[in-house]
């Protein structure tokens, strides 16, 4: 990225100053990226720390945590809980949200703006309010807190994000494609299955991934509605006071690389298929 544009004979300090001037924005961006990624690097590095129970100060390098990720108590059960919740939430919220997105983009109907508002409001409400209002409901109705209440709550806040993601993809679709399919004697159902659905599929997949990561990483709403049930973020938060085992860093780092791989592969695949 570094090209000095100054004349080669100018004095060094001047050239340096010109280079900095030309690349100020790039330098700024690099610093911003360091800020963004430094905690990620820390989390990864400390997954190799031979720390025992409290992983705060760097001790010495070890592979043990990676070889034995379930070595610390509670880590793996909480991860399994989070995965199960995340999968159920992803399936349900993606289906419900996609249906809403279709009805909003494909139809004009009375109550459309009210629907839009009801989709927008949960995203414009802080998580403490969402969490505490659900807790108020569950307390008033004497619903026991646990796995079920966590799943119900997660689906609620994921639906809006699914709607917005799928809607964006649907709105950018050229309606003439479907029209052309029907001109070529495809039935409405066929046109939907063979034209619309494949074109919207990447948007639905993206929405599903978003829902999963929102659910998997949610702490605040979970904390209000989980009772004794423990998810991975809740486990990390609760153990922060007495020390987080390095195995938590292993799990987080592994999730990081899996997610990164999925995104990079989908980008690569998208480019090979050329602009859809």
């Amino acid at each position: 990225m570094s090209q000095a544009t100054a004349a080669p004979k100018a004095p060094l300090t001047h050239r340096l100053r010109t280079w900095v001037g030309d690349n100020a924005l790039r330098i700024y961006a690099v610093i911003a990226f360091v800020y963004l990624l430094l905690p990620v690097a820390y989390t990864f590095a400390f997954s190799f720390n031979d720390a025992g129970r409290t992983n705060i100060v760097w001790n010495s390098f070890t592979w043990d945590n990676w070889l034995n990720p379930c070595g610390a108590p509670e880590v793996c059960p909480s991860v399994v809980n989070s995965l199960v919740v995340g999968l159920i939430v992803t399936v349900v919220s993606t289906i419900l949200g996609t249906l809403i997105a279709f009805s909003l983009v494909r139809y004009r109907f009375r109550g459309r703006s009210t629907t839009n508002l009801l989709i927008f409001l949960p995203m414009a409400t802080p998580e403490v309010v969402l969490g505490s209002s659900l807790l108020a409901l569950f307390l008033n109705l004497f619903v026991p807190l646990g796995f079920t209440t966590v799943v119900l709550a997660h689906i609620m806040f994921c639906i809006s994000f699914v709607v917005v993601t799928v809607k964006a993809r649907l709105a950018s679709l050229d309606p003439r494609l479907e029209q052309a399919a029907m001109d070529l004697y495809a039935s409405e159902r066929e046109a939907f299955r063979r034209i619309t659905l494949p074109l919207v599929a990447p948007g639905i997949a993206a929405a599903g991934l978003l829902a999963f990561s929102l659910s998997f990483d949610d702490f605040i709403i979970t904390n209000f509605n989980s009772g004794q049930f423990t998810t991975f973020p809740k486990f990390v938060y609760v153990s922060a006071t007495r020390g987080i085992p390095p195995q938590a860093n292993v799990i987080a780092s592994a999730m990081f690389f899996i997610a990164l791989a999925i995104v990079l592969i989908s980008q690569f695949a998208g480019r090979r298929r050329k602009e859809v």
Partner: peptide, 12 residues
């Protein structure tokens, strides 16, 4: 950064 649990990033 979203791919790492935000509580762990805050701990970092």
């Amino acid at each position: 950064p979203f791919f790492v649990s935000f509580i762990l990033r805050t701990i970092a």
